[in-house]
Simulated assay, not measured.
Amino acid sequence: MNQHVPATTAPTGAGGPVPESTPAGPGTEGLVAPVPVAARKDSVPAGAPAGDSAPARWAAEFAGTALLVFAGLGTGMFATEVIDSALGFGLGLVAAIVAFGHVSGGHFNPAVTLAAVVAGRTPVRSAPGYLVAQVLGALAASGVLWAVLVTLLDSSTTAQVLGAVSNGFGENSTSQAGWTTVLLVEFVATALFALVVLGATAPRANAVLAPLAIGAALAFLLTIAAPFDGGSLNPARSTGAAVVSGGTHLGQLWLFWAAPLLGGLVAGLVHRAADFARPRRGGSAGESAGESAAGTDSGSSTAAAPTGAPTASEREG
């Protein structure tokens, strides 16, 4: 008969290296991103080797961003309704988080990376590598879609199709929205999206539902933004589409970096100021230690396992 064992603390994946005294699944000790390690079925003793290396995280961010952009732009190119593109991005993000989030934490978006840094959930030193990997992943996905199109269509039609899934304002907007309108829409939508990411992956949130919540938020926010500018919320996504489509979209790319990054900055500040990242009250001693770690600027954090997550004894018994 199993004895009752208090719930073990589990890393959220929200911060940087997890202290060696914290029980954690393999690969979580150095996790630097907000997406949590949800209800792990494995555990390793204290003092286990460090987690995935920086190149492994960069590769995961590259692959996840490529999957996200390929899914979203691909549905936008070959579907007839805007909602299909939004769902493509949302479902692509869910798949990317599940497939690669346990390695890098699953940002796949420079604005999310900035929000995580400002919120104290990711070390500043990790941001440049993530940003480069994300942009390269988006460019790779966009390049593959361009290569497919040029085998099916002539050059002018290919340019039209790629332009239709690129972001823009004025003449490049389906509603002819001006740059100030698009700037406001992108800023507000990205801030809300980044808040969902940070909130859904906070220590007290249900980590199992985090990928669905994040993907759903992206889908419905893109549905709102799409009539104004094609829907971005992601500078890497906008860069990939603008580079392959060319023309005036490249000249308007600055807005789709400025507005989402500003939204991520504000979301990170709000999340940090509101102290949403604090662990549950009334937890074990390990949770108290996690609360202290989560409040540091190093980006490291530990937190209680999500509600409903099995304890170590329950998994073994």
Rank of each mutant, 00 (worst) to 15 (best):
Y130A: 06
A236P: 07
P11H: 04
L145P: 04
V244N: 01
V44T: 11
A147P: 00
S245R: 05
R278E: 03
P55Y: 02
L153K: 15
A191C: 11
L87I: 13
G101N: 10
G137A: 09
L233Y: 15
L221M: 06
A177T: 12
P235H: 06
A33Y: 13
E291R: 13
R57C: 11
P11A: 04
G286R: 03
E81T: 05
P36E: 01
A164H: 06
V82D: 05
V69M: 08
A305I: 03
L114R: 09
A277E: 06
S173D: 05
P36L: 07
G168T: 08
A111N: 00
F70M: 09
V161C: 05
A95L: 14
L192K: 06
S245C: 06
T296W: 09
A194V: 14
A127D: 08
L149M: 13
S284N: 12
F256Q: 09
W254C: 15
A309Y: 03
V196D: 00
S284G: 10
A226L: 13
T302Q: 09
M1L: 11
T181E: 15
A116Q: 10
S173M: 00
T201M: 01
A96T: 10
A133V: 04
A116C: 14
G286L: 05
A59S: 07
T122Y: 05
V148C: 11
A115Q: 15
N172E: 11
P11L: 03
G290S: 12
V32N: 15
G120V: 13
A303H: 11
T307R: 14
P260H: 05
P49R: 01
V161R: 04
F78G: 03
T151D: 10
V243Q: 10
V37W: 11
W257M: 10
L68P: 01
L212C: 07
G247T: 02
S53H: 06
G13S: 03
V112D: 07
A304F: 09
T223Y: 10
H107M: 02
L153P: 13
P49L: 07
E291L: 10
G231N: 10
S313T: 11
T181Q: 15
A39P: 02
V161P: 05
T248K: 07
T174A: 06
S313A: 15
A66N: 00
L221F: 03
T80P: 02
F256Y: 15
V132A: 04
G286Q: 03
W254M: 08
K41E: 12
R280N: 11
A303F: 09
A285G: 03
A133M: 07
N172K: 14
E186G: 00
A304H: 14
T75C: 14
A96H: 11
H107E: 05
L269W: 00
N206L: 14
T8K: 02
H107T: 02
A119M: 04
F108W: 01
V112T: 10
D297H: 00
